[in-house]
Design a protein around this nucleic acid. Structure first.
Lengths: 341, 341
DNA sequence: TCACCGTGCGCTCAAATGAGCGCACAACGC
DNA sequence: GCGTTGTGCGCTCATTTGAGCGCACGGTGA
């Protein structure tokens, strides 16, 4: 059939040469019919009078030469689906939600992200789940976004930290439970107590024991990521300067619901642990879905740490932090490639 | 297994709702892995923990909602492959070559387009073809672009029209034949003679008869499209004002190698016919591949006419004329739809 | 001139894909 | 309470698609 008349090919690899216009146009026609008009390759082959194999090769060449450009964009609302998907791919996450929220007004950002987290949670949770919650300022707006919710049990994962505005973890847990109609497993206890004995006594209280007994059956944990710096961690802000420095000295870099991690995302044992009413890092890590809210580009290294440490496998965040994470991950990747190569 | 917990869907059709972030992100992840990372749907299904059917539906939804954008662009050089393919699709052409050539400098445009036509011709012709050629100023630069060429027979399709610069059809035919080594079937005769008897006598000459005997076996014709206006048609320019008006009066709108057509692309019989040494319109139309060079947006209606009349099935042109053609075709289409609906 | 090599391209078979069907479950109406 | 309806989703089968193989032809060097 083929005459084989045409012999040479241009020097650049992808098979399509500038000095073969007919080939290029043929590829474009195939690409047009395949991608834009949605025809199958056999149909295209029939219409172009060539074999379907040639069609396939032309399409490959067209894509490799950059003639066909495919991009994934945002569909609407302020959810950036493309970035979300990229986070999932790059970090191997189970869930990611990136929202386009301006990050200059921090309280507004916090509020919007909390609502977004509520949306996301409402969307991924099912009646068979058991929800665990820890405290974070960003989560106080979460219930506002909940319209309907399954009647899941909801477990308080840590003691409470007093907040200036009077909001607290118990309100949050009970608020969510109220929307869904599920049972709220709450208890009255602070997150940090003066000594280990007090903590032990508190843990023996029936309500506390009940809640912590449920922790192993928690399927989704909703919490926030703190960075061990002023104003980036509820716990940091609650400690004395001496305590803060002591913690930093032993490598504390990040905290999640009162559990501490170093810069590589490895759980840390600290002198504070025995005085805290929390769900420890390794236990958190064993929860199937750990959804963390994080905001502010200042937290990117902390977020990277817990992602690498496989502590959290879901993120709710905003575009600028998402981009910062991807940039840092790329740098890291390149540095590693450079070192090994 | 699905719990069926989620019930309602947003009001807009494509299946992806803004108030279901997880679904949207899932679709984006699927799209990312399918289009950008090149994974198969079953692999994606495994990674996302869903069935491959859901993956397919998510991909459909993502495309329909505009989340995945696919566009076909130009690969390099000055060939606009996307426009070329669009011309082919819209007009059902066998070949189309659209080049990005500035159209403000007409002689340069003509020259560049002629070379481009040479490139294109060189690319689509095979040793089994028989090439027919008619005259056009734009084709005089054609041989310059030919580097190698198969030894096809080359047939002169019409008599010659004297040109101010001394270039003519015989040079063109012999030039092409020289590059390829094929036989040039040329003859010495003008395109238009004073009366029918002279024309008949000329047609009986051995060289002329030889060439015209070959016309039915021509597989590719290379020619140009003229518009029945000053400076847009070699023949118009060669006639007297009285003859020009007489032709216009009987509906002559377009000429191709001395064959005349009305505004709908139907071949016309004119008083001039018996005095012309040409290949008639219906004969042209029976040639498998008729490649026409056309330039200047002023010719768009003539090009449309011969496209609609199925006279030519291949075009070599420049971007602005190509776009004008597509625009006019769209208008036509809309007008028709409006009238019928 | 002839054997050798590279390249383009079509064929075969297994994997991937899409259309249509039926099930399970939530949201109504009586 | 209990059918009815609508919707999401997985299953089956015919079609489509991709990987590997072998052929034919042009180009190259003895």
């Amino acid at each position: 059939m083929s005459t084989g008349y045409h012999a040479k090919m241009g020097r650049d690899m992808p098979g399509l040469s500038v000095d073969r216009p007919a080939e290029v146009v043929l590829a474009a026609r195939a690409a047009r019919q395949y991608y834009l008009e949605g025809l199958s390759k056999v149909d295209i082959a029939d219409r172009l009078g060539i074999s379907r194999f040639r069609v396939a090769r032309l399409l490959d060449a067209a894509r490799e030469s950059g003639m066909v450009r495919i991009e994934i964009g945002l569909p609407g609302g302020n959810l950036d689906a493309g970035l979300s998907a990229e986070l999932c791919s790059v970090f191997g996450l189970r869930h990611a939600f990136v929202f386009n929220v301006p990050d200059d007004d921090v309280p507004a950002l916090r509020q919007r992200l909390g609502e977004a987290a509520g949306q996301a949670l409402m969307d991924i949770i099912t009646p068979d789940d058991v929800l665990g919650m820890a405290w974070a300022r960003s989560l106080s707006g979460l219930t506002a976004a909940l319209t309907r919710f399954p009647p899941c049990p909801i477990v308080q994962l840590t003691g409470a930290v007093p907040q200036p505005d009077g909001s607290d973890l118990l309100d949050l847990v009970r608020g969510v439970a109220r929307v869904g109609g599920g049972r709220a497993h709450v208890f009255y206890a602070p997150m940090i107590v003066p000594d280990a004995e007090t903590a032990a006594a508190i843990r023996r209280q029936p309500d506390v024991a009940d809640a912590f007994a449920l922790v192993p059956s928690v399927t989704i944990a909703m919490l926030s990521i703190g960075s061990w710096q002023p104003d980036l961690s509820t716990i940091y802000d609650a400690l004395t300067p001496a305590e803060r420095e002591a913690m930093a000295a032993i490598g504390v870099h990040t905290d999640i619901g009162g559990a501490f991690f170093d810069a590589d995302g490895a759980p840390l044992t600290t002198p504070l642990d025995s005085r805290m009413i929390i769900t420890p890092g390794p236990v958190l890590a064993s929860i199937p879905t750990v959804l963390a809210v994080a905001y502010g580009t200042g937290k990117s290294s902390s977020v990277l740490a817990v992602l690498r440490g496989k502590i959290v496998n879901g993120l709710v965040t905003h575009s600028s932090l998402a981009r910062a994470l991807l940039d840092e991950a790329r740098e890291h990747h390149h540095a590693a490639a450079h070192a090994s190569g």
